[in-house]
Amino acid sequence: MVDDRYGRKSIAISAQLPPVAKWHGVFEDATIADAVLDRLVNNAHRIELKGPSLRPHSSQNKGGDGTTE
């Protein structure tokens, strides 16, 4: 998908991953990681948000995914 859209269409990604420099560890295959990250990071407009989460913290929300048990 990334290769098909590269240079022709926009891709918006939102993630709770560490900084881009550490994204290689997310992929199992280093070659795939290099190819995807090259296409995503090259010519990208990155916005890294800092600060506390605006999600309410509750003992009922143990998974952090918005669901309650």
Rank of each mutant, 00 (worst) to 15 (best):
R5Y: 03
P18L: 11
A35I: 03
Q60D: 06
G25F: 01
D3K: 15
T68Y: 13
H57C: 00
P18S: 06
M1F: 04
L40M: 14
E48S: 12
V20C: 00
M1L: 11
M1H: 08
Y6D: 08
S53N: 05
E48A: 07
A33C: 06
K50N: 14
R8E: 12
G25P: 02
D34C: 07
S58L: 12
G51W: 00
G64D: 03
A15Q: 01
G66Y: 06
V20M: 09
T68K: 09
S58V: 02
H45D: 04
L49E: 13
K62A: 07
S58A: 11
H57E: 08
I32V: 15
S58Q: 10
K9A: 09
R8Y: 07
I32L: 13
A30S: 13
A21D: 12
K22Y: 08
D29N: 15
V41T: 13
N61D: 15
D38N: 12
R39H: 06
R46D: 01
R39Q: 11
R8S: 07
L54E: 10
E69P: 15
S59F: 05
T68I: 15
S14G: 15
L37T: 01
I11V: 15
L17R: 13
D3A: 12
D3N: 13
S10N: 07
A30Q: 13
A44L: 08
V26T: 12
G63S: 11
R8W: 01
L54H: 11
D3M: 05
N42I: 02
T68L: 14
N43Q: 11
A21T: 11
P19N: 09
D29C: 05
E69Y: 12
S53W: 03
I47W: 00
I47D: 02
A21F: 00
N42M: 08
P18D: 12
N42P: 04
L54Y: 05
T68H: 09
F27C: 07
G64L: 02
N43F: 10
L54K: 13
D65G: 00
M1A: 12
S58R: 15
G63C: 01
D4M: 04
K22H: 09
K22S: 13
R55K: 15
S59M: 01
G51D: 06
H24E: 05
V26F: 14
G64M: 01
A15N: 10
Q60E: 11
R5F: 10
A21C: 02
D38Y: 03
S58Y: 01
I13N: 04
V36S: 04
I11F: 12
D65E: 05
L37C: 07
K22N: 06
S14Q: 01
P18K: 07
R39F: 03
V41C: 14
R39L: 10
I47A: 04
I11E: 07
D3Y: 06
S10G: 10
L37S: 04
T31N: 06
G7Y: 07
G66K: 00
V26R: 08
K50P: 00
P19S: 08
Q60V: 11
R39S: 09
G7H: 06
P52K: 15
P18N: 09
T68R: 10
L17G: 02
